[in-house]
Each structure stands twice: as structure tokens, then as C-alpha cells.
Amino acid sequence: MAGLSIWHVLIFAIVVILLFGTSKLKNLGKDVGGAVKDFKKSMKEEEQQASQTQAARTIDADVNVAENTLKH
């Protein structure tokens, strides 16, 4: 049988727990979760900043068109 069976995964999990201990694995899980949360937060902030920049450019372009129309 090719691939991993449930027994292979179970034995691997037991070995990892014995090597690192549950407290280290718990801390690792917290660290990874925090990193993912920070990454999502920074992506959301970047998207908001990009949309604000695009809105400002649109307003500037509208103002320039209005000024050029009034000049002529």
C-alpha cells in the first residue's frame, strides 16, 4: 500500500509528542496562530490603504477635470 496509513500518522504523532513534549507543541501552536493572525491583519490594513489611495487619486482626477473644464 502506497502512502501513509492511519497507523503511520499515529506513530509519527506519538514520536513528535515524546520528542518535543506537549507544552512545546502548545507554544508552537500559539506562535503559529499569532503569526497567521498578524499576517491577516497586515493584509487587511494594506488593502484598506490601497483603497484609500485609489479613492484619493480618483478625487484628484475629478478635481483636475473640473478645473480644466472651468478654465476653458
Score class of each variant (00 low, 15 high):
N64G: 01
V63D: 03
F39W: 03
N27S: 11
A35H: 14
K24H: 14
G29W: 07
K30F: 15
W7Y: 09
K41P: 01
K44H: 01
E47C: 00
I17P: 01
A61W: 05
R57G: 04
T22I: 11
I6C: 07
L28F: 06
V63Y: 02
S23D: 15
M43C: 05
S42N: 04
G3M: 01
S51V: 04
A35Y: 13
V65Q: 07
N68A: 01
S5K: 13
S51C: 00
R57Y: 12
I14L: 09
A61E: 06
A13K: 12
R57A: 08
L70P: 00
V65A: 12
D38R: 11
K71I: 14
V63K: 04
V15A: 04
L10N: 04
D62F: 09
A50M: 14
N64P: 00
A61M: 03
E67G: 00
I59R: 13
M1E: 12
F20T: 09
H8C: 14
V65D: 14
G34L: 05
A13W: 03
I17A: 11
T53V: 04
V32L: 15
E47G: 00
F39R: 10
I6L: 12
I11D: 12
A66Y: 12
T58M: 13
A13Y: 02
D31A: 11
L70V: 04
Q52A: 13
V63C: 01
A61N: 05
V63H: 08
N64L: 10
L10G: 09
L25V: 02
E47K: 02
I59K: 10
N68F: 03
K37I: 07
K24T: 14
K24G: 08
E47S: 02
